Deep mutational scan, measured.
Amino acid sequence: LVRYRTISKIPQITLNFVDLKGDPFLASPTSDREIIAPKIKERTHNVTEKVTQVLSLGADVLPEYKLQAPRIHRWTILHYSPFKAVWDWLILLLVIYTAVFTPYSAAFLLKETEEGPPATECGYACQPLAVVDLIVDIMFIVDILINFRTTYVNANEEVVSHPGRIAVHYFKGWFLIDMVAAIPFDLLIFGSGSEELIGLLKTARLLRLVRVARKLDRYSEYGAAVLFLLMCTFALIAHWLACIWYAIGNMEQPHMDSRIGWLHNLGDQIGKPYNSSGLGGPSIKDKYVTALYFTFSSLTSVGFGNVSPNTNSEKIFSICVMLIGSLMYASIFGNVSAIIQRLYSGTARYHTQMLRVREFIRFHQIPNPLRQRLEEYFQHAWSYTNGIDMNAVLKGFPECLQADICLHLNRSLLQHCKPFRGATKGCLRALAMKFKTTHAPPGDTLVHAGDLLTALYFISRGSIEILRGDVVVAILGKNDIFGEPLNLYARPGKSNGDVRALTYCDLHKIHR
């Protein structure tokens, strides 16, 4: 019993810090008490220290592992850092350059016999395009090294910054494609005289377009951006097909006994025919423009016929181009109408809503002055909100995010209106959640004399007048207030005048 009563005193000691020596009952000389009392004092002292730490809000209350900052290894790049964003855009520009100039170089340097010394005699450094290609190869190699040090988000939505895990993730992902696209074939085969082989191998750079397509997928929600990307894709495919079309004609031209190829026909049409040795002929500019003209006309199913396939190889390629053109029509131009419709969806919704308003007016036989006010209010409210119901949009977000959005939407009023000066951010967040926005066209009466005042109004834009009878008592403008002081009276009061809008007004109100 003594032991039980001794232990039962522990909660009292913990909360009230009572010393055991003052209790005459606990001072009985028993061996059990002498053993338990020192333990009680020690526990009391420890609990006292913990309570003191909690009340003082000291940093040592938290466990040590929670006080440590997340460790980022040296030379690790955050995937959302500004440097990584700028670097990704730079790589994107280099990939676009590669997609345009690599097929052009591979096709127009394929057994090209233009006048001038061969590239091997001039030297590697004197070729501007080769120098640019070398810079692109170096940048792609540097990009691989950067990807080995860039964080990523795993399946659990955690940012991984450990170098080993980053390397394994990159090896399992895009490393092989990036490595093949970054191989400097110019340096590996330079001086061997195989410019045709170098041009063909350099087309491996186009593998990076797969990554670019995935990154550009984030802009699919913007109709104008999608339309622009589709047109660029169409032009890029036409450019690639033009390079292939020229390569076919250029390879067949020296081996044909009869002059029936499209390059021969082009030379005869523009007065620059090929001679018996295969030299001469149109310039590279004429060849490229004509090839691009043929691919565009074939892809769009126009086909004027002034550039036509004559050999079997050219006919087979033309059939493939027609098939590609039909697929592009289905996948690209078939979506253009939907994209344009999405661009004008706001206008369509406006006309639909206006039609419903006019049908309501016609069905209920609203008189002319009231009908005009109804239409003007709808037009003004639509121009202010673009038909978007803010309350319906915010309803799907958590309250903390709703408060931040409301604070942002009402920031101008909260910053410049005098009653809100000096208020804490928590108070402003709470008030912003209570605001209701209303609009009024010129001549609209917001409050009639004798109406119950259940709200306090803040003028965000425009001006109003307060009338008693036919006498203008006051004219209020931006950041002015009218209405009933909230919670100042037990019952809502009545208006002693009319409140009429002089201009288009936007008002925020808080109800009782």
Rank of each mutant, 00 (worst) to 15 (best):
E64P: 14
Y65I: 07
A69N: 13
I72S: 06
W75E: 01
L78F: 13
Y80S: 08
S81M: 01
P82C: 15
W87G: 03
L92A: 03
L93K: 01
L93N: 01
L93F: 09
A99Y: 01
T102W: 05
A107I: 01
F108V: 01
F108G: 05
L109Y: 07
E112T: 09
E121Q: 11
E121I: 11
A130G: 03
L134F: 06
V136I: 14
D137A: 06
M139R: 01
D143C: 01
I146W: 01
T150V: 06
N156I: 05
E158C: 05
V159Y: 03
V160E: 14
H162R: 13
P163A: 13
K172G: 05
K172F: 09
G173H: 13
W174G: 04
V180M: 13
A182S: 04
I183L: 09
P184N: 04
L188H: 14
G191P: 11
G193I: 10
S194T: 14
E195H: 15
L200R: 04
T203M: 12
L207P: 12
L209A: 08
R211S: 01
A213N: 04
R214Q: 05
R218G: 05
E221W: 04
Y222Q: 06
L227N: 01
F228G: 11
F228H: 01
M231Q: 07
F234G: 01
A235K: 01
A238F: 03
W240I: 03
L241F: 05
C243V: 01
S258N: 12
N265L: 13
L266R: 01
L266T: 01
L266P: 01
L266C: 03
D268Y: 05
Q269Y: 01
N275P: 01
S276F: 03
S277C: 04
S283Y: 01
K285V: 14
D286Q: 01
T290S: 01
A291N: 01
S301Q: 10
V302M: 03
N306L: 01
N310L: 01
N312T: 01
L323D: 01
L327M: 04
M328R: 03
Y329V: 09
S331D: 01
V336H: 02
S337Y: 10
A348F: 14
T352M: 11
T352L: 11
L355M: 12
I361P: 01
I361W: 03
Q365N: 03
P369V: 03
A381C: 04
S383G: 08
Y384A: 11
Y384N: 06
M390E: 03
V393G: 02
L394M: 09
K395I: 07
G396Y: 05
C400W: 11
C400L: 07
H408M: 03
N410L: 06
S412F: 08
F420R: 03
F420H: 03
R421F: 06
G422N: 15
K425V: 07
A430N: 12
L431F: 07
A432H: 02
